[in-house]
């Protein structure tokens, strides 16, 4: 079983989705994340082990390599695609409760801003780290965040902004969330931000890159 888990880990790390995917070229015709996940489930591997021993560590490794400039966005997206086909096979176990997420992460680009690349990358990596992600999209007003929080009590919130003119819109969102739910943890990120700015507007965390978001989430997740 360990060998299969390692192979699945490897497929996700290098973005080998299934037997038909021609990439990476040296693995052409070989099994991918889809086939190894099927095989693991058929052989009785627990969905929790598949998540915790293969998928999450693989995506963590990709995130780490990304933050060290050893891989770039396209490779990260290929890894996420491979992970997604695997997670798709695990969905029934989430429904039955046999497999549990670490928590719910609500993410959105704040109102006035339409940029979504950074937000999407964070959402993808957080999902790969075992969290359920509720993506509210772009140009999200404070009330949409609070409404999502009402639907997902106990969720953690992530706010994104790319411009100096829109990062100021993070504060009203943080204020609205904290007014309604003071215990809700909020992490912010985006090119013009700094940790100093993040804390000055009342956020609890600052994610310089997707991996920092994941590490912060894991830290507060385990602390719960």
């Amino acid at each position: 079983m360990e060998d299969l888990l390692n192979k699945l880990h490897n497929c996700v790390e290098f973005g080998k989705t299934d037997i038909n995917s021609p990439y990476p070229p040296d693995r052409k015709g070989q099994k991918g994340a889809l086939e190894y996940t099927q095989e693991l489930l058929e052989k009785g591997a627990s969905p929790t082990n598949i998540m915790e021993l293969a998928l999450i560590p693989a995506m963590n490794k990709v995130g780490r390599k990304f933050s060290e400039n050893k891989v770039f966005v396209p490779q990260m997206l290929l890894s996420a695609k491979a992970m997604n086909v695997s997670v798709h096979l695990l969905k029934p176990y989430f429904r039955t409760g046999e497999l549990k997420r670490k928590g719910v992460f609500i993410i959105g680009t704040v109102f006035g801003d339409l940029h979504d690349i950074g937000k999407n990358l964070v959402a993808m990596m957080v999902e790969g780290a075992g969290w359920e992600v509720v993506d509210l999209g772009v140009d999200v007003k404070p009330e949409k965040f609070t409404e999502a929080l009402r639907q997902h009590p106990g969720a953690v919130v992530g706010l994104s902004a790319l411009l100096t003119t829109t990062m100021v819109n993070m504060k009203p969102v943080v204020d609205a969330i904290k007014a309604e739910s003071p215990a809700t943890k909020i992490i912010v990120g985006g090119a013009p931000l700094s940790s100093g700015y993040a804390f000055s507007i009342g956020a609890d965390g600052y994610g310089k890159n997707p991996q920092e978001n994941v590490l912060w989430l894991n830290a507060i997740g385990y602390a719960k």
Binding site: P22, Y23, V73
Partner: peptide
């Protein structure tokens, strides 16, 4: 620009 090697013809990018 994407930091993908253009000579890797089969790279999905």
């Amino acid at each position: 620009f994407l930091k993908v090697d253009p000579s890797e013809k089969e790279h999905p990018a």
